[in-house]
Design a protein around this nucleic acid. Sequence first.
DNA 1: CGAGCGCTTGATTGAGTTCAAAAATCGTGG
DNA 2: CCACGATTTTTGAACTCAATCAAGCGCTCG
Lengths: 192, 192
Amino acid sequence: MEAFAIYLKNRLALTDEQATQATSCLQTKRFKKGSILLSPGDTKSDSYFINKGLLRYYSIDEKGKEHIIQFAIEDWMLTDRDSFIFNEQSNFYIEAIEDTEVVIVKKDFFASIKNIVPEILELNILMLHNSIRFMQKRIDMLLSATAETRYLQFLKLYPNLSSRVPQWMIASYLGITPESLSRVRKDLVKRK
Amino acid sequence: MEAFAIYLKNRLALTDEQATQATSCLQTKRFKKGSILLSPGDTKSDSYFINKGLLRYYSIDEKGKEHIIQFAIEDWMLTDRDSFIFNEQSNFYIEAIEDTEVVIVKKDFFASIKNIVPEILELNILMLHNSIRFMQKRIDMLLSATAETRYLQFLKLYPNLSSRVPQWMIASYLGITPESLSRVRKDLVKRK
DNA sequence: CGAGCGCTTGATTGAGTTCAAAAATCGTGG
DNA sequence: CCACGATTTTTGAACTCAATCAAGCGCTCG
């Protein structure tokens, strides 16, 4: 709660009271490593702000393979749009990679906070544009780059993440097999 | 202009006067097939609403290969975020695939229309979420699916587009070579 | 301390690429 | 409206990057 209030304060021009007022009705929740917060078919009206820990947003295909759409770390929000925005059944999983504490942001939070802090709408828009820009770069990378290039870009983009996430999940985020990633890394070390 | 006013009217609860008022200051522009509306390095404050025609949003990699991030057809907006939202240099190209007429939406349009129709902010948020949801599905597909599956999904998603776009551009959108797409199509016909 | 999980390594396979060239289609000017 | 050049699509053959299958190692955590 604390962290989320600070987050809002930093991004909007809020007084302390406004920040506490806005976040007072929110609840935090802890999940142990490995917990599933959302599964395909669910329709929850929760969005998560991460106080501490690390979540993954992923799918499982017909062959049982996992594909990671997104990681989410401290100070990020993770939202399943199918569920949260469009009230449809989700297609994805959300899982805690570490023991994680989240702020549960319900659907009506945005409805009520915009009365207190109307600027939140524009902040929201800006952040959504930023997400899109980010995802477009990822799509560009998936369309064009080799396994090695993808991995190097990943390291540059998330320098801190690689130590917190098992290697096979990085592979799954990059769209390659764990074996291939292992070989890519071996090559990089050898050539260095 | 016409089309854009209708577009807004349908999505927001606007009177005719409001719709005309909001769009009166906007300009339309025509581009011939093959025109480049934006190049990497540009920083334009234009966003495009497409009255008629078809645009592509793409990159060119070090080997000179093109990678299509997005197509945009009638009634869609195409925005380069680097440029339009963040005032940075663009990384992508925008090109007219057909002779195309667009409404030029300048940056300040949103600033001024929100005074007339505040609901536009929430509409905007909803559409951005929808874009993200869409792109997440595309990323999932790029991470998991074979050339054939991607192509079939593309046909399902854009049934009308495949006739308006040359095959090599579809291949470029799917992340495969034109040769591969040709073979995929051959196989599909044979198996049918 | 042992079972399971994650990472590595090797051998083989396979989907898609590359390069090359022919066939089909498009479009533009005469 | 036709013809010719350019672009697009198809086809073929060789090749390559990454996937698959399989086995072994090392760590950790129960």
